[in-house]
Design a protein around this nucleic acid. Sequence first.
DNA 1: TATGCACCCTGTAGTCACTACAGGGTCAAG
DNA 2: CTTGACCCTGTAGTGACTACAGGGTGCATA
Lengths: 135, 135
Amino acid sequence: MTRLAIGDLAKATGTKVETVRYYERIGLLPEPGRTAGNYRSYDDGDLGRLSFIRRARDLGFSLDQVRELLGLADQRDRSCEAVDVIARQHLAEVERKIADLNALRDELADILGRCRHGTVAECRIIETLAPAASA
Amino acid sequence: MTRLAIGDLAKATGTKVETVRYYERIGLLPEPGRTAGNYRSYDDGDLGRLSFIRRARDLGFSLDQVRELLGLADQRDRSCEAVDVIARQHLAEVERKIADLNALRDELADILGRCRHGTVAECRIIETLAPAASA
DNA sequence: TATGCACCCTGTAGTCACTACAGGGTCAAG
DNA sequence: CTTGACCCTGTAGTGACTACAGGGTGCATA
């Protein structure tokens, strides 16, 4: 039975120590056992759970979504439909963000393309930002 | 000479009243004059400045970048190179975010495509999240 | 005149997901 | 026996707002 200190757990999952304690504080990780010297002591189950959390975070799921996914992952006999729904919602959200950013990029590129590199007074970028021409 | 109450200014620029006060607090908007009843009183200059801020924010510039752009906009005789640099940096940042999100979308779509809609125990999504199979 | 209502004021705390201290304790190596 | 790496708790900061609580102002209507 492997016992891990918080630093080992953090390193094994690419997490900062403070973040591990933060996840514990918000109830995402269970309170681990303690050593005689009051150090947190983790096992393989904790390692798996934290890996799950980090992987889901890397995929852009919010901590609330991660919490739901963790809850679902434990009910092994249930249908995985709820899991699918969360992932699908997240995908839709990502696609919306991409569309927004694409529009933004086009607008920025357009503005930049019109800059003639003169003085601020005749700068198209500033002009675009201040539509009504004021101070 | 038009005099605007904070609510009018907010409405005219599509801003919330609290946000206007927040911009004042962080020094992005100057402290306006006050009426006898201690209400903030704005003029056209304030309207122009807030419009500028909102437009820049809509284009995704950070408040620090907005602060710089506002400072530059006032130096009408300077070269607009610094303006161009800020905008170019922002464009690069937006393009980086788009690339990241595209990669994320592909990964999510891939995971979702592998879901066979059975039980959680055999769910590909959960499996993908927990690479080492633990609880 | 009273009263209702929309608007305004200040100050503080909450959001999200961490991150960064300050000020201390523990433990193994040299 | 001391040095250094690690650990502990608790609090405050990040960005860009947003949301109260608890009060004051100003105008129209009954």
